[in-house]
Computed example of a mutant assay.
Amino acid sequence: MSARSRAELRIEREKTGMLWWVGQTISWLALFVVLALLAIMVLIPRLGGATAYTVLTGSMRPDYQPGSLVVVRPVDLNEIQVGDVVTYQLVSGEPEVVTHRVVGVGNTLGGEQRFILRGDANNTNDAPVVPEQIRGKLWYAVPLLGFVNSAISGQQRTWLIWLAVGGLLCYSAVMLAGAWCDNRRKVEK
């Protein structure tokens, strides 16, 4: 066997050895995790017209622990029923929100609709909520992902998305170049 053949055989073994497979598995898992996080936190809510919030307190225990990511999308107020989980503004027009369960829906003597809400772990109801305060109904929730959501601001999220896209494009370019080089080596033989 010539020196060139032995070197080619060694390179082929390195590409299919145990270390190579471990590296491939880790890189594919990392890629899958990043894509899944982007989908859960950004893509799905954006496509669904929803907003992601982070549960900060224990008022919705045991179902929604602090640090849970809750994704809420707007719904027709007539669809909101007792038992639904909704996010509402504490003060109409202000950014601070709370996610609690609807325990009552009714009207005032003047005919204005009101929602009565309470955290699952709370003993008392919240102050009555007017329709303008309701941001939406719970679509889905993911435990612990809210910590990531809180740690990344809107501007950081935009940069991270572009960084992930750039990284994926670079990764695909490297893989394409590697395949092209391997193909050329096989043709030259």
Rank of each mutant, 00 (worst) to 15 (best):
M1T: 06
S2V: 07
A3S: 14
R4H: 13
S5V: 08
E8N: 11
I11F: 13
W21P: 05
V22S: 05
V22G: 01
T25A: 13
I26F: 13
S27T: 10
F32C: 08
F32M: 12
V33E: 05
V33P: 01
L35S: 09
L38E: 05
M41V: 02
V42R: 05
L43C: 06
I44Q: 03
R46C: 07
T51Q: 15
T51I: 15
Y53E: 01
T54G: 11
V55F: 04
L56Y: 02
G58L: 06
P62Y: 01
P62H: 00
Y64V: 00
Q65L: 13
G67P: 00
G67Q: 03
L69I: 00
V70Y: 02
R73Y: 12
R73L: 03
V75P: 00
D76R: 02
L77W: 07
E79G: 03
I80P: 00
Q81H: 09
Q81V: 07
G83E: 14
V86G: 01
L90F: 06
G93V: 03
G93R: 12
E94D: 12
H100P: 08
H100F: 07
R101E: 14
R101S: 05
V103R: 03
V103F: 12
V103E: 11
G104L: 07
V105P: 00
G110N: 15
G110L: 15
E112Q: 05
I116V: 08
N122A: 11
N125Q: 14
D126N: 03
A127H: 06
Q133W: 02
R135T: 04
L138A: 02
L138P: 11
V142I: 12
V142R: 00
L145G: 00
N149P: 01
N149M: 06
S150T: 15
I152L: 12
I152A: 06
Q155G: 06
R157Q: 14
W159C: 01
I161M: 07
W162G: 01
W162R: 02
L163M: 12
L163K: 02
L163W: 06
S172G: 11
A177C: 08
A177E: 07
R185P: 02
E188I: 08
K189G: 12
